[in-house]
Each structure stands twice: as structure tokens, then as C-alpha cells.
Design a protein around this nucleic acid. Structure first.
Length: 880
RNA sequence: AGGCGCUUAGCUCAGUCGGUAGAGCAUCACCUUCACACGGUGGGGGUCAUCGGUUCGAGUCCGAUAGCGCCUACCA
């Protein structure tokens, strides 16, 4: 029974646009991506790294989702009850920024709209644009279960977020405190430490003189941020620094402000070797100064406000000025007072907010934090004891290094789009943290309750993704069946942002690691290894290349290049793999025009009855099958894909198909032999398509439907596994020898300038009768592929025919008389030279007693055999 | 500053247990043969960054050096 949705015949030309959409709809209509709830098979599950809901598919998404889909399809075909949970992330700041930008086009600002209306606008935006990325993933062939798609702001997920927040708060792991945080004056929100990106910048280092009060001494201080001096509340020196020891405890006069500030000793803040050994201390605007301020009980004077403008505390001359203007103004005033001593060029790294590229302002602010150490400890242990395995394992040391030096996590954001923190304040400022909205304050009974306005860091909800998507905190069938998930596939760039936090939260709230393996892939670059960016114009848009080359070629390319930290990607590679798809297409057309698909329903292949050629190709296929399964189990998508490419094109197409043509075209053998060949050819196509399916799902499904699959689909066909009984070393050896002879003859033909029409005679010498019989039997094969008119076994060749030794067999090629050119002589001499060099090396090796004594017997034996072959070869070649 | 990684053909990269250096692309020559010119056949191209060590034997293991990249922390 053929499926009616499929076209009967393969089109002449491979055109992915003709069938990819149709095939995807076919799978969707059958519900092929949804696991069977009744299944007794072992489960296998993956959750998608949720892309930004307003995002558009970029090449990084294409990579990670291709890799996930390869694993999912492989496992599904390998008998697992397989689930891939898709979904999207609300992506707090990023989404808010996108919508704000859209509104700005209409001249509307978020602030004038108000919180409620703005959030409603974002939801509108989400509803109209949110499915775009899922449709794009479908074009890639993603076999995710769309019926289970989740969004981090869904009701269920929101409940999980709230539940986790409340529990962590009551366990003392979430607290609210006044602390120095990273503040983005552009986005007007605090961000966490890891959201700060550091950029190298050419700046200046200014030296400012601070007069010591009641003395004519001057302390010179270097700074990269002179405007912060307005907030200085001390100068610090090292307690052991002899130069300044006597000044400790005295006061300096802060220039411009003319405030007196203490001169303190702080061994942690001050490195006496650096600069002048005197440091200005600005506790409200610098991280290490903040800590020094706490140690020394210094006042915190905020001179820069949340909007990046100077506060009243900065003084009347500066209030309201932007940070940058304030810097110029401060420098001018210092210059005027002749207190600016020197300026030098200086390269330092400046913290910026990655999302908007604005310089971060360290700021003292009341925020919510997660006390991270108690969560990190078990997460470290889980990786250390192997409960979770990070692949490649080189990332484990990075993971440990970060987790062991981790700082508390700032989770509150002064945004509108996100999970609003479930904390409430009563009229008396009592804090109530609760899963449901409280009616009155449990402490004082006040009914005047207002909710916290801050929302949570997006990554807080992402951290719960592996179990929140499955219905947690309820005990659901999905949770029981598919949690913990099997592997997490993602880029190494979000190891800290996401992976580490999922491990911490998963262990804390489910008592189990959220996944067994973490596979970290590299980052896609252009062919020169540069980051892709719109400004550089080197972006490869996955949707464009899918249009151009087809999803299968794009997927195959991504699989092949996937290994390594950086993944250089060029369109030319996709073109190359679309040629491979074309090859698959045409080889299948060839097979289908010679093979009756009814054969598949006939009795299984009897391996003992097969010819050597068929036993050989089955053995080679088995070898490829073994390699592919092994490579996939190790997440070596590149090896798996290369193995299939190599096998299908260069063994199956280049050799096997050519070898069976004489039989299929009726030039050799009888109908019974042809039928055996047809049966095996069909088997090869069937198995190859199944092996290729996870990588190239569309083309394999389209063709496989033509094999008379009884209404089935390759997506649910069984993935081939290696079968030792298919291995055949003898067949491999004899066919390899045959191939080597054919190559040698083709080579001789090309080198001597003969056309394909001119026929030769081949003489072969064998050492045994079975070998002689083999070559006699396969004369047609040699004759057809090497264009010979005779193959003569174990007879004396004419002395003037070129002799050689190939695969251990002495051969001679009798060719029509032709002038021997200088090039041929030189080439033969080069061959002899090469062989002699290798021979000399080997003989020296074998002459070394220690080699013979210490090396394994097989290695010595191999060397001896090679020596014999080389000697014979040199002799034969020399005769010419 | 600390940590991690990389250096192999013109380009981009594989290379398992230490045992005769591989692939794709590019390049050159020949071939429009009845699945495919998105094709076939054959060829050329490498001091495996450098130096030293271990070993019978090193692209592979160890140490150092140089160059490049990334991460983390800090940078008055």
C-alpha cells in the first residue's frame, strides 16, 4: 500500500521545494512527533533551549535544533518513546526593548502608556509574532511535539515560578537587601553579574592631587573615572606603606567639593606597588570601593542617579549633568584649580550591558537576591560524581571554576515584562511573600497591601524549564515519564546563564538532576572564523539557505561542521551537501527503475546464497552502520554524517552501483542472478535511507515511501544496528583487490594518454586456486569497469607489458603499442623512488633488533609483508 | 593575572589504543557512457608551529617557547 499523499514516481530532478512542506504536513497529520501515552518503551526526552518569543530563526538556532532533531529522530527510530518539548522564552529585557522600539515608531513611550497597557501591548505582539519562530523550526524539519509547546509566561509555568520563589524565600535562600548592583542607566534596571560584558576600551588615566588637611602634603591619586571623585568618602593607603604611614588617620581635602575625607589604611583595596599607592574610595559607585567602605564604615555618597545623571549630592555645579558631561566639567574645574597633574593613555575594560551596549553604573540599590552557595554545592557534586556528564568534558573545569566562585544572584529587574515577584508590602512595610495574593498583613492586619513592582530575571523561569514544562509542581504523567530529561543540547555561551541554574533548581526542587548529559556545541562563525553580525554583512540566514539548498542540505552541513568550539560555516558547503542530496535522489531513481519494490515483501535475504560483490557491500554497509551508531552515541554528528556521506557516495554509488550494472543491464549473468542483485540493491537503499533519515529527514521520507513500505513512514522505521553476521572479511579483501586493480589500470590509461575506447588485456598472478577462481569469475567486472577485452589468470604475460604489484598480486597490463613519453618514464621513476624510500625505512626498522623484540608481532609481520611487496614492485617497475 | 583551547594540504577541518598522514572545498588533465555535469575517472599538493624529552617507533604522550583564540577575575 502506497501512501496516497505521495507522488508515484520520483521527479527527474531533485527539488526540495517540491516536497519538504508536503512531507512535514504528512508527519503532522499522522501525529508522528507525539509520543504514544500507552508506550511501554523506555523514554527519551529533550527540552528545547527556548528561543526568544519575538525572535527570528538565526543560524545558531538552526544548529542546535538540527542537532537535537538528529538525536530525537535517531532515538525515535531506535525504539524509544521519544519526546521533544518545544517552546519559547518571554526574554524579559529583549522583548520589552523590541516592543518599546515598535511603539517609539508610533511616537508612544512606555512610560506614558503605563504598566498595564504596555504589558497588554507586549502580549498582543507575542500573539501576532510569537508563532513565527516555531514555523521556522518546522521548515528545518524539527520533529518536536507541538501539542506540548510551552511559553515561560504560561499560566502553568508562572505557577511553578511563584512556587519556587516562595519556597526559596521561606527557606532563607531568597532575600531582599540594599547592595551595590550593576545598574543599566539605559534600561533603568539592575542586572546580574554575568549579564555584564567587558569591553576593552582606550581610555585615559588622570592623576588628581588631594591636599592633606593641615599640611602642605599632597596625595596624588590616579583614576579612570574622575567624575566619581565627587562621591569620594575616603583616601586609602596600604597600612605598611612607609611613604604614607604617618598620614593614616588624618584627613584630605576633596578638591572641588572641599569636603574633608579621612585617610584610611586598607590592605585589601590598596596595592602599594600600583600607581602612587593612594586610592580614592567611592563606596557608592565602585565594587571594590563599596566593599572597602563596608570594611571601614565609610559613608556611601550617591552622586550618580539611576538615569545616569548627577544627583544633588554631586553639588550644585553638576546636578543634572549626564555622566559624560560631568566628567568633562570635573576635569575642567580640576585643571582650573591646578590639581590635575597628568593624563596618560590607558586601556581598560569597561562593563557594558550586553543587550543595549550602555556602560554599566555600579549603584547601591535595594534588590532581591538568591543566596546561591547552598544551591551550587549539590550542583557541583552532581557533575563531580558523574550524575551529570558534560560533553565535551573540557567544559567541566570551566563549570567547576565558576560554580566554586559564584556570587549571589540578583534576580529582581525593574521591568514590566516578566514574572512579577510574589512579594507584597503592607502599610507598615511588612513584607509578605506568598503564592496567593494576601488580603491583609498577617503581622499587623493592615489591609492596605501593594505588590512588589519588580519582575524576575528571565533566567529564573528558564532555570525551571525541564520540569515546569512537564506540569510541575503537580505530579503529572509527563513528569513521571519524561523527567529527568535525557540530554540538554545547547551552546557553551549559556553554560552559566542557563545550564548551571537548571542543575541547581532541578536538584533543589525535584531532587533529581534535570538531565543526564549536557552536550555543548560551538558557536557558528563565518568561513573566516569571525562572528556573524549584521554590520559585517556576513550573516547566513537559515531561511534563505533552506530556500536555496533545501532543509536537508542545510541540516547535513550543520551536522558535518558541528564539532569544535568555533564552527566556521560557508554557503559553499551547503551547496556541496545539496549535491549529495541530489546524488541520493538520483541513485534512488536508478535503483527504483531497476528494482521491483514488491521484492521487499518477498522472503528475507539468504546471505549464504549471495555473490561476493553483494556480501562485500553488505559488509561495508554494516561497518558504516556500526560507526554511525557509535558516533551518534558520542554526539559526534560530524563523524556520523561523514561516514554516511563516504559510504553512500563513494562506496555504494561509485563502486557497487557500477559493479552491478552489467548484471542489471543484462550484459552478464542470468535472471536469477539479477534478482539477487535487485533484492540487495533494494535492501541497500532501504537501509541507507533509514540511516540517513535523522540527518536528511525530508528526502529520505520522500524516497522511502516509494519502496513499498506498506503505508509506513521512515520516521518510524527501525534504525539499523550492526549485525556481526553481515561482516565478511574475505569478500572485503577480494573486492578491495579488484578495486585496486581497476584503479591501477585506469591510472595507466590516463597516464599514458589512452582513450576509454582503447581496450587492454590484464594478466593476474595468484598464489592459490580459490583466488584464481575468483578473478576468473569476475573477469566481466574488471573488463567492464577497467575497459579490458581480456583478463588472463596465471599465464605468462608478454615481457614488454608494464608489470606492477597491486594488493599483493602481480599484474601486467598489455596495451596497444604507443610511444612511451618522457613523462611516463619520469613518473615510473618517481614511483620506484617512492617505493624504495619506504622500503629503506622499513628495512632499517626491521634491522633494528629492538623493534623486532618490542613491537607487537602483528606490526612486525605487517612490515615484513610490506617489504616483500615493495621489493616485488620495485623489481617489476624497474623492468620497464 | 588565573584557567581552558588551538597551531596538520591553497582554504575549512578530522585524525580512536603511539605503528605507512585523511576528508570536503579549491586546483590540474581527461571524459557529455543509457541515475546524476549538483556527474565520472585520474593526478598534483603536507618538515603535522618551534625546541627538547619519553619510546624500538611520536601528528598522537610529557616539558618548554612562540603565535592566535576564548572564559573568569581585576584593572586606583
Amino acid at each position: 500500500m502506497r501512501n496516497p499523499i505521495m507522488k508515484e514516481e520520483l521527479a527527474k530532478r531533485y527539488d526540495p521545494n517540491d516536497f519538504e512542506k508536503r512531507i512535514y504536513d504528512f508527519w503532522l497529520s499522522r501525529g508522528d512527533f507525539t509520543p504514544d501515552p500507552e508506550s511501554k518503551e523506555p523514554s527519551y526526552s529533550i527540552v528545547i533551549p527556548p528561543p526568544n518569543v519575538t525572535g527570528r530563526l538565526h543560524i545558531g538556532h538552526a544548529l542546535v535544533n538540527t542537532l537535537i532533531d538528529i538525536i530525537i529522530r535517531w532515538k525515535r527510530m531506535s525504539g524509544f518513546n521519544t519526546l521533544w518539548v518545544p517552546g519559547t522564552d518571554h526574554a524579559g529585557i529583549a522583548t520589552q526593548m523590541v516592543v518599546e522600539r515598535e511603539l517609539a515608531k508610533e511616537g508612544i513611550s512606555r512610560l506614558e502608556l503605563g504598566r498595564e497597557k504596555f504589558v497588554a501591548k507586549v502580549w498582543e505582539w507575542k500573539e501576532s509574532h510569537g508563532d513565527q519562530i516555531q514555523e521556522q523550526l518546522q521548515r528545518l524539519g524539527a520533529s518536536a511535539d507541538w501539542t506540548r509547546s510551552r511559553f515561560t509566561l504560561d499560566e502553568g509555568l508562572s505557577r511553578a515560578v511563584r512556587h519556587v520563589f516562595v519556597r526559596l524565600y521561606h527557606d532563607g535562600l531568597i532575600y531582599r537587601d540594599l547592595a551595590l548592583v550593576n545598574w543599566c542607566p539605559q534600561c533603568l534596571t539592575a542586572i546580574s553579574d554575568i549579564e555584564v560584558e567587558y569591553r576593552e576600551r582606550n581610555g585615559k588615566l588622570w592623576s588628581i592631587d588631594y591636599p592633606v588637611a593641615g599640611s602642605d602634603r599632597i596625595l596624588t591619586v590616579a583614576t579612570t573615572r574622575p567624575e566619581t571623585m565627587l562621591g569620594d568618602t575616603a583616601l586609602a593607603v596600604h597600612p605598611d606603606d612607609e611613604r604614607y604611614k604617618d598620614l593614616i588617620g588624618r584627613e584630605a581635602i576633596l578638591p572641588i567639593a572641599n569636603r574633608r575625607i579621612p585617610i584610611i589604611a586598607d590592605p585589601i583595596l590598596v596595592d602599594p606597588e600600583f600607581g602612587t599607592g593612594v586610592v580614592k574610595v567611592t563606596p557608592a559607585h565602585d565594587k571594590s570601593d563599596y566593599e572597602a567602605g563596608l570594611r571601614n564604615h565609610l559613608p556611601q555618597l550617591q552622586v550618580i542617579g539611576e538615569d545616569g545623571r548627577m544627583t544633588a549630592a554631586a553639588g550644585a555645579d553638576f546636578v543634572g549633568l549626564d555622566r559624560r558631561e560631568a566628567r568633562k566639567s570635573v576635569l575642567a574645574k580640576l585643571e582650573e584649580a591646578r590639581l590635575l597633574r597628568a593624563t596618560k593613555e590607558y586601556v581598560n575594560s569597561v562593563g557594558v550591558h550586553g543587550k543595549c551596549d550602555t556602560d554599566i553604573e555600579p549603584m547601591i540599590s535595594r534588590q532581591w537576591f538568591v543566596k546561591i552557595e547552598p544551591l551550587a554545592k549539590p550542583a557541583i557534586e552532581a557533575v563531580r560524581n558523574g550524575t551529570i556528564e558534560i560533553i565535551p568534558d573540557s567544559w567541566e573545569s570551566t563549570y567547576f571554576n565558576w560554580m566554586e566562585n559564584i556570587h549571589d544572584w540578583t534576580i529582581s529587574r525593574q521591568l514590566w515584562w516578566g514574572h512579577r515577584i510574589p512579594a507584597y508590602y503592607c502599610a507598615n512595610e511588612h513584607v509578605i511573600v506568598s503564592e496567593s495574593d494576601p488580603a491583609s498583613c498577617p503581622e499587623c492586619g493592615s489591609a492596605e497591601i501593594r505588590r512588589e513592582t519588580d519582575v524576575l530575571d528571565t533566567w529564573f523561569s528558564s532555570a525551571l524549564w525541564p520540569f515546569s514544562t512537564m506540569g510541575w509542581p503537580d505530579d503529572t504523567p509527563d513528569l513521571r515519564t519524561f523527567y529527568p530529561t535525557s540530554v540538554l543540547v545547547t551552546g557553551f555561551d549559556i553554560l552559566f546563564f542557563w545550564v548551571a541554574r537548571m542543575i541547581m533548581m532541578g536538584l533543589r526542587f525535584t531532587g533529581r538532576a534535570p538531565f543526564k548529559h549536557v552536550f555543548l556545541h560551538g558557536l557558528v562563525r563565518d568561513e573566516l572564523g569571525q562572528k556573524m553580525s549584521k554590520t559585517k554583512g556576513n550573516v547566513i540566514d537559515p531561511l534563505d539557505v533552506i530556500d536555496e539548498f533545501g532543509a536537508d542540505a542545510v541540516r547535513f552541513t550543520l551536522a558535518v561542521v558541528s564539532y569544535g568550539r568555533d564552527i566556521p560555516l560557508a554557503k559553499s558547503r551547503m551547496q556541496g551537501y545539496s549535491a549529495f542530496a541530489n546524488k541520493i535522489w538520483n541513485a534512488s531513481r536508478f535503483a527504483l527503475m531497476h528494482v521491483d519494490t514488491e521484492l521487499a515483501d518477498a522472503k528475507p535475504i539468504d546471505y549464504k546464497e549471495l555473490r561476493t560483490v553483494e556480501r562485500w557491500i553488505l559488509s561495508r554497509l554494516n561497518d558504516a552502520t556500526r560507526s554511525v551508531n557509535k558516533a551518534l552515541a558520542a554526539y559526534r554528528f560530524d563523524e556520523a554524517a561523514n561516514t554516511l556521506y563516504q559510504f553512500f557516495w563513494h562506496e555504494l554509488c561509485d563502486w557497487y552501483v557500477e559493479m552491478v550494472k552489467p548484471v542489471l543491464l543484462g550484459k552478464h549473468g542470468d535472471e536469477a542472478e539479477a534478482n539477487k542483485v535487485r533484492r540487495v540493491l533494494l535492501e541497500m537503499l532501504d537501509r541507507s535511507l533509514r540511516l540517513l533519515h535523522p540527518f536528511m529527514p525530508f528526502i529520505t521520507e520522500e524516497i522511502w515511501q516509494k519502496l513499498g513500505a506498506g503505508g509506513g513512514a521512515v520516521i518510524h522505521a527501525k534504525y539499523p544496528v550492526a549485525d556481526d553476521s553481515m561482516d565478511d572479511a574475505d569478500a572485503e579483501r577480494m573486492i578491495a583487490a579488484t578495486q585496486a586493480m581497476i584503479t591501477a589500470i585506469r591510472n595507466a590509461r590516463a597516464e599514458r594518454g589512452f582513450t576509454p575506447k582503447e581496450r587492454f588485456k590484464l594478466y593476474i598472478k595468484t598464489a592459490s586456486d580459490p583466488e584464481a577462481a575468483f578473478f576468473a569469475e569476475h573477469t566481466y567486472l574488471l573488463a567492464d569497469l577497467a575497459r579490458l577485452d581480456a583478463v588472463i589468470v596465471n599465464a605468462t604475460a608478454p615481457a614488454d607489458a608494464p608489470h606492477d604489484v597491486v594488493a599483493g598480486y602481480e599484474i601486467a597490463i598489455e596495451l596497444p603499442a604507443k610511444v612511451v613519453t618522457k613523462e611516463q618514464i619520469e613518473r615510473t621513476q618517481r614511483e620506484i623512488e617512492k617505493s624504495r624510500k619506504e622500503l629503506d625505512g622499513l628495512e632499517a626498522k626491521l634491522g633494528n633488533e629492538q623493534f623486532v623484540r618490542n613491537a607487537p608481532a602483528s606490526v612486525v609481520e605487517q612490515a615484513r609483508a610490506r617489504v616483500a611487496e615493495l621489493r616485488a614492485r620495485i623489481e617489476k617497475l624497474g623492468q620497464q
